[in-house]
Design a protein around this nucleic acid. Structure first.
Lengths: 200, 200
DNA sequence: CGACGCCATCTTGCATACGAAATCACGCTT
DNA sequence: AAGCGTGATTTCGTATGCAAGATGGCGTCG
């Protein structure tokens, strides 16, 4: 049911910042934009609502979710809870091929893309369908907000270091190490967030 | 958008076991059953998919999710991760009124309803929108599966004890205690699950 | 006897139409 | 001039039609 086409297009448009936070999403306009009718748009919006990317109110329409500092904190705290667990599960279940893939991603030039893929592989490797669904609530965030991290050299280095350490932990099939590294990785991001964006 | 009416009806039908796991959900049939058309049904199904209650495959329709032992374990492990965190957050944010409400629920006669309400209040009190969404991935489960717990006297007592202890922790505004009690509460449920349903 | 392929049927996915609710603008009242 | 009420317009929610894809049964072939 519901071919994922429109959903993915809409998601990309929001993540890419093409549709900005706070912007009202009129079904008719989106339908024209994507060359379809309102029906698939409505279905996509409902799915994205479950993902936390849009707010939808009955009889009033959809709006791109706005992100203030508290929202981001909330979101990253959830990640700090879920992803270390995912890493621990993945450590005992990940395939050698996937570890190779993770290692390769450490050398990838586009760090934003590499980072998304990196965390995605780990999540898949955890083989917990419920965890996968739950994490969707913590991944929906326009790239503009994430790109902050990649402008800071020290942050990039720390991130890369964590990723390499994670690869090592996976090779050693060490769930505790993987969990600890991932926790540091996410909590580090929160700390950086608090520093760069103190309390606006 | 999307009046919640049909969605809630459908959810209830699944939770109540009226629509059984594995059962195919044909849009037309459901539309007749609820006295509406296929459109709201489709939208409800997509929302319930995000909640993990139904499986939906493009062009092939929806099916009530089946739950085997591994699924339940996966689901409860996720709860064991999320709910203690929710309890810790709630401890510092919950209102006195809500604590009173929790205490009253401990005396409620219908323990299944009381239990759902109890955990719901705590989740709300945590005031973390993302956590709320994530938890939806861990609550979708027909009541038949839960009712197992309420047939065991010892389990009922332990559960009630945990709930009372949680109330005390909230009164004392003690996040660590609340978190620990909640963790025990959920992990206890997992252990009970493993005992009663060893490895079928 | 079993497997493959073809055709009839069913079900879904999308487009479109129509009634209902909300929004907006304008003029009126105070 | 500010606030309120009313009508026009916009936007949503639901129903329904139609085409594409999936399902299932039957006959044929190996």
């Amino acid at each position: 049911m519901a071919s994922p086409r429109v959903r993915d297009l809409l998601e990309e448009a929001i993540l890419e910042g093409d549709l900005k936070p706070g912007e009202r999403l009129r079904a008719e306009a989106l339908a024209q934009r994507f060359g379809t009718s309102r029906t698939p748009i409505r279905e996509a919006l409902l799915q994205l609502e479950a993902q936390g990317l849009v707010d939808v109110e009955p009889n009033r329409g959809a709006v791109v979710r706005t992100f203030d500092r508290d929202d981001l904190r909330d979101l990253y705290e959830l990640r700090a809870l879920l992803e270390p667990h995912a890493a621990a599960l993945a450590a005992t279940r990940i395939s050698d091929d996937d570890v190779d893939r993770l290692e390769a991603l450490c050398e990838h030039e586009d760090q934003i893309v590499a980072n998304e893929a990196f965390h995605g592989i780990i999540l898949e490797a955890a083989q917990s369908p419920r965890l996968l669904v739950a994490m969707r609530a913590a991944t929906g965030i326009p790239r503009t907000f994430r790109s902050v991290f990649w402008h800071d050299e020290a942050q990039r280095e720390e991130s890369l270091m964590c990723h390499r350490r994670l690869v090592a932990a996976f090779r050693a099939r060490d769930p505790h190490l993987a969990e600890a590294v991932m926790r540091m990785h996410i909590l580090g991001a929160i700390a950086f967030l608090e520093e760069t964006w103190p309390s606006r």
